[in-house]
Amino acid sequence: MSDQEAKPSTEDLGDKKEGEYIKLKVIGQDSSEIHFKVKMTTHLKKLKESYCQRQGVPMNSLRFLFEGQRIADNHTPKELGMEEEDVIEVYQEQTGGHSTV
Score class of each variant (00 low, 15 high):
I88Q: 03
S50H: 08
E84G: 13
M82D: 03
G81F: 15
L65V: 12
V101A: 10
T42N: 02
E33F: 01
G14V: 13
D86H: 03
T10R: 12
M40A: 06
P77V: 01
G28E: 05
D30T: 08
V26W: 02
E79S: 06
E33W: 01
I88V: 14
G97N: 00
E33H: 02
L80Y: 05
S2P: 13
I34L: 07
D30A: 12
M40E: 12
K16M: 12
H75Q: 12
A6Y: 05
H43P: 13
K48V: 02
G96Q: 01
H75S: 13
M59T: 14
T95I: 13
T76W: 04
Q92H: 09
S31I: 08
K48L: 02
L13C: 07
H43E: 13
K17Y: 10
E18R: 11
E89V: 09
K16V: 10
I71K: 07
E11R: 10
K7V: 05
N60L: 04
D73Y: 04
K25Y: 02
E93H: 12
T10H: 11
E20T: 01
T76Q: 01
K78Y: 15
D15N: 13
Q53E: 15
G96I: 01
P8G: 08
D86P: 04
H75V: 07
I22S: 06
R63D: 00
M59W: 05
D15V: 12
D12N: 13
E67V: 06
V26P: 15
I22P: 07
G14D: 12
I22Y: 00
G14P: 01
Y91F: 10
H98Q: 09
H43T: 10
E49A: 14
H98D: 08
G68W: 04
Y21G: 07
L47E: 02
G68D: 04
R63M: 07
S32Y: 05
K16W: 06
L65E: 01
A72S: 15
L47V: 08
R54Q: 13
G19S: 11
R63W: 13
Q29S: 05
Q92M: 14
C52P: 02
H75W: 06
E49N: 03
Y91R: 06
P8C: 14
V57N: 05
K37H: 04
E67Q: 06
V90E: 01
G97I: 00
T95R: 14
V38E: 01
S2A: 13
